[in-house]
């Protein structure tokens, strides 16, 4: 059997004002359903092992977490090799509740943008207020990154984790390293 690899095979770049690294394969499960239903919440929290995030928030610890995608959609993160069993677990919890959970791990690219200037580099690319007091730890934002959709959150201090479509991974990587070129500091934040 062929072995799964991430979109850019773990490409990394650190010649500029921030470091761009493609994260290893990340298990991702899209869960859609009514959040008011206890089963939907339990399906997500039992697999991710974190609390249900509030609107526009993400609770992520290492490779596990839950991201709030929309009023009826969660992105459940878990280790890549546990996705299959986790989906079965979730479906068992959901029972006949109207809902959907599907493995989207291979449909996404994940990047880490890190360094003291990471905030500034990202702010060049997204129409989001990234001032340190406006975009804080725990927030999750889906938006437009130059010409493609992307979502991101602060994974650690000075490290943004960015999710994009796998087919656009090369574009996003190039975009990030262009925005992080040496000497391109803005010193705004």
């Amino acid at each position: 059997m062929s072995s799964a690899t991430s979109a850019l095979n773990g490409a990394t770049w650190s010649d500029g004002i921030a470091t761009v690294t493609e994260a290893p394969l990340q298990g991702m499960i899209t869960l859609r359903g009514a959040f008011s239903d206890a089963k939907v919440k339990k399906a997500a929290t039992s697999v991710a092992g974190v609390d249900m995030p509030g609107q526009g928030q993400a609770n992520c610890v290492e490779t596990r977490g839950i991201c709030w995608m929309s009023p009826d959609e969660l992105l459940v993160l878990c280790p890549y090799d546990t996705v299959g069993t986790n989906i079965e677990k979730m479906q068992a919890v959901l029972g006949d509740q109207h809902s959907l959970c599907v493995d989207v791990s291979d449909a996404r690219g994940v990047f880490d943008l890190s360094g003291p200037r990471a905030r500034e580099v990202l702010a060049k690319l997204v129409p989001v207020d990234l001032a340190p007091d406006q975009f804080t730890f725990g927030m999750f934002r889906r938006t437009r990154m130059a010409q493609v959709p992307a979502a991101f959150w602060l994974h650690e201090d000075d490290t943004f984790r960015i999710i994009c479509f796998r087919s656009q991974a090369q574009y996003v990587f190039d975009l990030l390293i262009t925005a992080a070129q040496p000497g391109s500091d803005v010193n705004f934040f």
């Binding site: 929309s70 129409p127 938006t143 437009r144």
Partner: peptide, 12 residues
């Protein structure tokens, strides 16, 4: 009003 995010026109 659905997700509470404020964005500029190009996000919509």
């Amino acid at each position: 009003p659905n997700c509470g995010q404020t964005g500029e026109e190009t996000e919509f």
